[in-house]
């Protein structure tokens, strides 16, 4: 075989190899960014579960103190059911709406504690304070990390050459941010007139 032919064939081989490596690494990057969103979502999911459990405990604690405690139980149950339904349908907007519902239920319960001294005198009162603050703080962090991973993915698929890979490998054009309703993301500033809860 003549020397120029060998050079051309070798160049084509190197080019194909390089393109192959670039395609594989681009695909792998898309997969890892997509998986990261799934992982961060799983943390939000577990934090929301923790929040529902705490809410149920809080609602149990007010049993007998409040004539309308059934309304609180219903609010929590509705929020939990709405979340489960949205999750089953892979409906992110529905999940965010359910997150907002449980935030409202939490705020209502906290307000009830704030207005009732006998509730504040309960032995488990300080523990509830700490549980609520800890879980809300963890949930806020989980949402933040989820949105970071969505931002990373969206940037990747909108920039060149990610935009090519996205079309080539049929990945979603963008992912949705976790945007809770205004005011529901704030970690509750728990005071309840106590001196150590804050």
């Amino acid at each position: 075989m003549k020397k120029p032919v060998i050079i051309v064939l070798a160049s084509i081989g190197v080019l194909i190899l390089t393109l192959g490596i670039i395609l594989i690494s681009g695909y792998n990057k898309l997969v890892s960014y997509d998986e990261k969103i799934g992982y961060e979502y799983s943390i939000i999911d577990s934090r929301l579960e923790m929040r529902y459990n705490t809410l149920t405990q809080l609602a149990n604690a007010i049993n007998g103190f409040q004539a309308h405690e059934q309304a609180y139980f219903e609010a929590i149950t509705n929020a939990r059911a709405a979340y489960a339904a949205a999750k089953a349908n892979n409906d992110l907007e529905g999940m965010i709406a359910a997150d907002n519902l449980s935030s409202i239920a939490m705020a209502d319960l906290l307000a009830l504690f704030e207005d009732n001294e006998p509730l504040q005198a309960m032995e488990a009162y300080e523990d509830f304070n700490d549980a609520v603050w800890g879980i809300e703080s963890a949930l806020s962090e989980a949402r933040r990390q989820y949105n970071y991973s969505v931002m990373d993915y969206n940037k990747l698929v909108r920039q060149f050459p990610g935009v090519l890979y996205k079309s080539m490998f049929n990945f979603p054009a963008s992912q949705e941010y976790w945007k809770p309703a205004e005011g529901t993301t704030q970690i509750p500033d728990i005071t309840f007139g106590g001196n150590t809860g804050e």
Binding site: I43, G134, A138, E141
Partner: peptide, 8 residues
């Protein structure tokens, strides 16, 4: 860390 904590 997943952000679970406490403050005083």
């Amino acid at each position: 860390s997943g952000g679970l904590g406490i403050r005083r």
